[in-house]
Design a protein around this nucleic acid. Sequence first.
DNA 1: CGGCGTTTTGAGTGCTTTCAAGACCGGTGG
DNA 2: CCACCGGTCTTGAAAGCACTCAAAACGCCG
Lengths: 247, 247
Amino acid sequence: MNPLDATRHTHTARADEVCATCGSRVAGLCKAMDAAALDDISGESDRLTMPARSLVFREGDTANRVFSIMSGIAKLTRLLPDGKQQVVGFRFPGDIIGYTNRQEYPFDAELLTNAQLCRLDRPKLDKLLTRYPSMEHRLLDLCMQELTTTQEQLVTVGRRPAEARVAAFLVSLLDARRLRGDAPRVLEMPMTRADIADFLGLTLETVSRSFTAFRKRGWLQEPEHMKVELLDLEALSGLADGTSDVD
Amino acid sequence: MNPLDATRHTHTARADEVCATCGSRVAGLCKAMDAAALDDISGESDRLTMPARSLVFREGDTANRVFSIMSGIAKLTRLLPDGKQQVVGFRFPGDIIGYTNRQEYPFDAELLTNAQLCRLDRPKLDKLLTRYPSMEHRLLDLCMQELTTTQEQLVTVGRRPAEARVAAFLVSLLDARRLRGDAPRVLEMPMTRADIADFLGLTLETVSRSFTAFRKRGWLQEPEHMKVELLDLEALSGLADGTSDVD
DNA sequence: CGGCGTTTTGAGTGCTTTCAAGACCGGTGG
DNA sequence: CCACCGGTCTTGAAAGCACTCAAAACGCCG
């Protein structure tokens, strides 16, 4: 844990408009909460800024805090006994990380970019959850969504050839942005080839080869480091779900 | 959908002991519910018996019902555009299937054995959930648990060699039983090699070869069709997480 | 300019898949 | 009773895709 600053919220913001801490009532836990609840949440939560590469929490740490991502991108990883790592998923603004029914966090959470987080102590969150059933309902919704995307990922990793996995990853990056409102032509992609490989169950070399193949076919370009522009979404998503070129 | 019979519950059972429909208050949704709630649930739910190989619901069907497995084992599968299928998971007594925040079920649910299910219409369930916050809490718990096991599965499929995946599958079969109280020496295993292969992202031949290898090493035996006895759990779980023989 | 981490590219190996054939098992009908 | 049949499982041999090992290119930062 390496916060640059952590300031307790002061009750000055207009709670009937947005959550004063997380800055939103259309994303994260605060979605669809009423004014009183938002005010309540603000009072219980802290806002913090953390730099890229810092760990929000580690696998095995006591799971006594929950975080909502306000800005930035995080990577969730599990370390295997043989030293390899599996990236369980990436998390974007609006996502909640660290909520689990286990005693300890089941994975590391590492920031890929500078980020602003909203932090809630677990006991306080539990109190809020019993006080506002709609909040628990919202959490259930988020959990279901996470479950669905993880199952999707299972299909990708389990049954698709290398290039199809990389294509599926790129399309899902775009989808993640669309789900949050905007679909910029050039996407942020702060993860390294190794990160992507560990997410897709491949080696970094194979991921690299897929990217060069896509580039040569004119399907994408990388205008600068850590950014991609998808030029032929049709082709990519076709490859991703096996609709194209095979059979 | 192919129910052998579907009988509306009659309020004769003692609701303060177990859920009259699902027959339990220590598993499924009914865990930790009070007497009034259990009685209420019983009144809203149906109990049905379905034969092996029948579909509880199909991917794409309107998700207007939720099922709790009282007895039997179910297989959840997604069909890929290229004809292959991915088994998303297996579900056991006490598990809930069909609860989703999507309009349609995201996968097929097929029974591998004869089964008894508890059926709830989605609108009725939603009413119950708002009436009994503890029930929603329980559902969140189940969802979290499912998420954790799916992530576990992701690691298995993504980063482990064939035999390790099969070993992990066998160990998880045992764990599933342990979680539900008993750990019999001989496990029911109603799934075919093809089912297991589609679950693990392998081919049925590779799964078959792994089983023969384990048998030759004396790690397991199959006393009869669709049953396994794990003779060397140590070796199997060692292989499963790469602790053994490698490095 | 030098150093370090990331990415790219190449060549060879190996594990899993693919293709194919035979064995096994339970159910059915002659 | 037994031969036949479909489905499942096993086993073998060959091919392919991704991995491993290795080295060079690139980009960033001090």
